[in-house]
Amino acid sequence: MTVSAVTGTAEKPIFLAAGDAALVVQFGEAIDSAINQRVNDLARALRSLALVGVVDLVPTFRSLMIHYDPLRTDQAQLIAAVEGNLHVQTASSERRRSWIIPSCYEGECAPDLEAVARQAGLSPAEVIAAHSGVDFDVYMMGFMPGFPYMASMPPALRVPRLTEPRVRVPVRSVSIAAEITVVYAIETPGGLSLIGRTPVPFFDLRRDPPVLLESGDQVRFEAISLAEYTALEADYAAHTKTLEFTWIDA
């Protein structure tokens, strides 16, 4: 069959074949909360159906990738299932999880804070206030286990990526570039500006589930001191403390 690759509309998405075992359902071209909500609503609806042959569902900023077993289903059946559930809202789409993430914006936890402040024409305190003063939406998980892409950044803090990426970014670094903020769930190379660090593990194999956040969550960062960070880091490492979320209306 031929999979549609024409421009999608607010009502009808684009269907794109991704090899012989995946189908992409694309809703738009921008980082947009309404588009991302449609992606997450569809993902929840399809998960609730437990469709035969579907192996995995991967929500992104603007599309949903459906991985499937081509010996058990095909693109025609999946497209029919998608089209039948485009306007379905599950109970979970009516509410979502909200997290308060402690973040230290001091000293070695924030090696790029001064540079970001200079680029933005702000003081370091104003950068901290701006970053910790808004609610971020988790648009997608990717790049590595537990790595959340969160938007949208206050316009004043939309600095470019680093011209030379770091070979090593410390685990749990709170970082920014353009419209997004992220937390590095494990130590890895990276090209974003490091303005803080959280003591909260975003990926922990001893936890069930091991990944803290999921697409559709809301996050607000809370500034803490270096002393508070050190104490909380020890508590989380010893598994004597867990971070709780609250439910909010979607």
Rank of each mutant, 00 (worst) to 15 (best):
Q89S: 15
A91S: 14
D217R: 04
G133R: 08
V159M: 00
S193D: 06
D135C: 12
G196D: 09
A120Q: 08
T60N: 08
A22S: 15
P59Q: 10
L162F: 00
S48L: 10
A45V: 05
R207S: 10
K12Q: 15
S132Q: 06
L42H: 07
K241N: 04
A238G: 06
W247V: 06
V39F: 01
A227Q: 14
F245C: 14
I186P: 00
E228S: 13
T246L: 10
Y229M: 07
D249M: 11
T60Q: 05
P170C: 09
L243Q: 09
E179R: 12
H87P: 00
R95M: 10
R220D: 04
I79P: 05
V171A: 13
R95E: 14
S92E: 15
R166E: 06
H87D: 14
P199W: 05
L23Q: 02
E126M: 10
F202G: 02
E187F: 02
A45N: 02
S33C: 00
E126K: 15
E233W: 00
I14F: 00
I128P: 03
E179L: 10
V24C: 10
A185C: 05
L205R: 08
W247C: 00
L71G: 06
A115Q: 11
A178T: 04
K241E: 09
R158M: 13
A91Q: 15
L122E: 10
T2P: 11
D69Y: 06
L51Y: 01
L51R: 05
V88C: 07
M141T: 08
T188V: 02
Y139T: 07
A120V: 09
P155C: 03
E164R: 13
A81N: 09
E11P: 01
F143K: 08
A80G: 12
F15A: 06
H87F: 11
R62E: 08
Y68V: 03
V182D: 01
A250V: 00
G133I: 10
S193M: 07
A17T: 10
R220C: 12
A80W: 00
S98D: 01
R97T: 05
E29T: 13
P155S: 15
G28K: 01
E29R: 13
I248H: 09
G142C: 09
V167I: 06
G19F: 12
R38H: 04
K12F: 11
I100H: 08
